[in-house]
């Protein structure tokens, strides 16, 4: 169904869902991290799971470390190993591969910034402190 005379892009054959997932992995990791942090904090404070010491690794900080490390690792994939990720997703990159790779990488950088900023808050603000 193609016209060989037309200068068409090579089909990436990855399908829309795979390409979108590849592009959006960084933001998806950021969203997951945001949800985990907020939900964990709510649960920890509501159920009274917080330890007393401000200096030791309390449950909130443990969650923050684990969630932030996982989310950064996940969102780094399009940046660090785009080729491997695309192969894992079954994509066969075509003429627009550079566009998708760079866009995904930039989104990953943006997301990692958001994740790091969010995660850092757990080490700056005491958990369960109410402002009023």
């Amino acid at each position: 169904m193609t016209n060989p005379d037309q200068p068409q892009a090579q089909d990436s054959k990855g399908g829309a869902a795979r390409t979108l997932f590849f592009l959006l992995l960084g933001p998806i990791a950021w969203a997951a991290h945001h949800i985990v942090m907020y939900a964990s904090h709510t649960l920890i404070c509501s159920l009274g799971l917080l330890g007393n010491s401000f200096l030791t690794l309390d449950p909130m900080r443990a969650v923050a470390v684990a969630a932030t490390a996982s989310a950064v690792a996940l969102s780094a994939a399009p940046l660090a190993a785009p080729g491997m990720l695309s192969r894992m997703l079954g994509m066969q990159p075509g003429a627009d591969w550079r566009f998708y790779r760079n866009t995904a990488a930039l989104l990953a950088v943006l997301s990692m910034f958001g994740i790091a900023l969010n995660g850092a808050m757990a080490f700056i603000i005491p958990a369960c402190l109410s402002l009023r």
């Binding site: 904090h41 900023l117 969010n118 808050m121 402002l131």
Partner: peptide, 15 residues
């Protein structure tokens, strides 16, 4: 809402 939760949203607002 507890302060730490607010900071998550504050951070996202700045991001």
């Amino acid at each position: 809402i507890p302060a730490l939760s607010l900071t998550f949203f504050s951070a996202a607002s700045m991001a």
